[in-house]
Design a protein around this nucleic acid. Sequence first.
DNA 1: AAGGTGAATTTTGAATTCAAAATCGACGAT
DNA 2: ATCGTCGATTTTGAATTCAAAATTCACCTT
Lengths: 230, 230
Amino acid sequence: MTLIDRSSLHAEVVARLRTAIVDGELSPGSRINERELCERFGVSRTPLREALKVMASEGLVLLLPNRGARVATLTRADIEDTFTVMACLEALSGELACAHITEEQIAELRALHYEMLAHHARRDLQAYYRLNERIHHMILTASNNPVLIATHAGLALRIRRARYVADMPRDWWDQAVREHEQILDALVRRDGAAIAVLLRRHLERKIDIMADSTGMAPSDADAAKTSSAA
Amino acid sequence: MTLIDRSSLHAEVVARLRTAIVDGELSPGSRINERELCERFGVSRTPLREALKVMASEGLVLLLPNRGARVATLTRADIEDTFTVMACLEALSGELACAHITEEQIAELRALHYEMLAHHARRDLQAYYRLNERIHHMILTASNNPVLIATHAGLALRIRRARYVADMPRDWWDQAVREHEQILDALVRRDGAAIAVLLRRHLERKIDIMADSTGMAPSDADAAKTSSAA
DNA sequence: AAGGTGAATTTTGAATTCAAAATCGACGAT
DNA sequence: ATCGTCGATTTTGAATTCAAAATTCACCTT
């Protein structure tokens, strides 16, 4: 593992710690050993601790006073609650995008949509996810509301671990693609009310798929109990 | 100024720094001198710097690498964008609250509403604001979605400085009170769709009042230039 | 006199140090 | 043999120290 660029150490450490957590390199609920992470990143404890505090305020890390840090766990309720809020935010983004999006952006969005259709046809789930993400993000961007974009990004980060699940029922996937077509159509018609409804339903339908899938921790409290065995 | 409790220094410093910024004790755009603040809080630079980094991730502070920290300024666009998102979140909270709120909570909400009416009748703006805030927060709480509550709180914090303005046009105030009555009514009827529309409109109407009022900084960039003017 | 140059000072960023709290482990009592 | 207690070790929290960057300001040049 390469050592960190010394010029903006704090930001680098935050970024790498975030990546490590979001990518599951540091498993949910696991204890974070400061000394160990320092060695791994090649930095002293000061910037690492600063990073931990930032991550805690982002909700990716749990800080137990005098007892160290722990990677935050996601309960099923956390995921559902987060997605409910994200669905609402994306609905708003679509609504705003209808008012602000340019013809060029719509053209690009259509291109991305066809690319996504290609991945769907090939059953390439990973590639599909990537395009899907780019499309949603492009609508967010077209909302022209930086606060909305940042708020969404903050929430997306926390559930990223759970968002992209391996098993997606075939019929669900087909339906999602159809929904995307309707969403694009509403955008072209600049029908804000319609796209808001479509986006929200689209996202809320995803909740069940996600939460059902991978083994979720029962809760932060329970995880803390079992791990420290205190 | 009392020195800080030494048991949870970092959290205390974050809380006090946040209060200082939100209450306008530290004026927007002004430079933050670490040494000076350390003396004021009676702590060393380490916990203060940790707090600054957390505040930066919250958006209350701007960190210029190697050039210190600055209290974030609010542009009119920031306020409008933030309120647009908050309006959407509160609409969702009302919708969810319709499904979860108990009869007892509705009774309490009605009591708060009458208290607020009293303050409105007396033209006691400060007291009105406090009640208004409690009512909105109670609906948020009744949504039973901690993520939604936390997200809303994070945004509310940033614009708190601008939210409660001194001059509120009489007709606007009267209208706001009428809207509150409709909102309460929708809640009683458990009409989620209606309350969502009402709450969103209610909040969005507030945007104009707020942004028009107090002297807003033109932008962060401009404010940085005229730095020492604070 | 105006503008630029460079050393002194201040301020920031990060490592180190120091103290307190928690964890671990051995020993002894029941 | 198990539980509890006391001391050693580790880990955390915060102050201090050290180095690098930026700012200030006197001085020099034109």
